[in-house]
Amino acid sequence: MSSPPSATDRPTYRLLAELEAAFDALIARTEALLAAFERAPCEAWAFDASTADAAWLRRALLDFWYQDGQDGRATNSHVGLVAADEALLAHVAEVNVAKAEFAARLAQIREQHPPLIAEAKAVLPFRHPELHTHLRGSGLARLHLKQCWRAIPVAEAPVARVRLAWYTSGRSIKRLSVREAERKLLALDSDAPHVRIQLRRLAGIPDGEPLAQVQAQAPLMRANLFYCEPLEDGRTRRAMNVALPLFLPAPRGRLPDCNQPPAAPPTQRTRARRSDERLEETPFLPSLRVYRYRSA
Score class of each variant (00 low, 15 high):
130 E>Y: 09
217 Q>M: 14
231 L>F: 05
200 R>E: 08
244 L>F: 12
104 A>V: 04
281 E>C: 09
210 P>E: 08
187 A>I: 15
177 S>K: 09
246 L>Y: 02
280 E>F: 06
133 T>C: 14
175 R>Y: 05
268 Q>P: 01
101 E>I: 13
13 Y>H: 13
108 Q>H: 11
198 Q>L: 11
145 L>N: 01
56 W>L: 04
262 P>G: 00
287 S>W: 08
128 H>W: 15
51 T>G: 00
139 G>Y: 15
234 G>M: 08
181 A>F: 09
283 P>D: 03
131 L>A: 07
239 A>R: 15
24 D>S: 09
48 D>S: 08
225 L>S: 01
285 L>M: 05
101 E>C: 08
47 F>N: 11
217 Q>D: 04
50 S>I: 09
171 R>Q: 13
10 R>W: 13
171 R>V: 04
25 A>C: 10
280 E>R: 15
280 E>T: 10
152 I>V: 07
98 A>T: 03
268 Q>L: 06
124 L>F: 05
25 A>G: 09
11 P>M: 07
47 F>Q: 13
198 Q>A: 04
157 A>C: 10
49 A>Y: 09
131 L>E: 13
296 A>Q: 15
101 E>D: 09
155 A>G: 08
280 E>I: 12
126 F>V: 10
101 E>A: 06
288 L>N: 01
209 E>T: 04
162 V>Q: 11
141 A>P: 13
47 F>H: 14
107 A>L: 14
267 T>M: 12
264 A>H: 14
141 A>E: 14
214 V>E: 04
50 S>T: 09
259 N>R: 12
95 V>D: 05
74 A>Y: 01
237 R>T: 00
144 H>F: 07
37 F>K: 11
126 F>P: 09
182 E>I: 01
207 D>K: 14
4 P>W: 04
173 I>W: 04
249 P>R: 08
129 P>R: 07
244 L>P: 02
2 S>K: 05
130 E>K: 15
238 R>Q: 12
33 L>I: 01
15 L>N: 05
99 K>W: 03
179 R>P: 02
292 R>P: 11
204 G>Y: 07
35 A>F: 04
209 E>Y: 00
190 S>A: 14
205 I>P: 01
28 A>R: 15
195 V>S: 00
3 S>G: 00
193 P>F: 11
60 A>E: 06
284 F>Y: 06
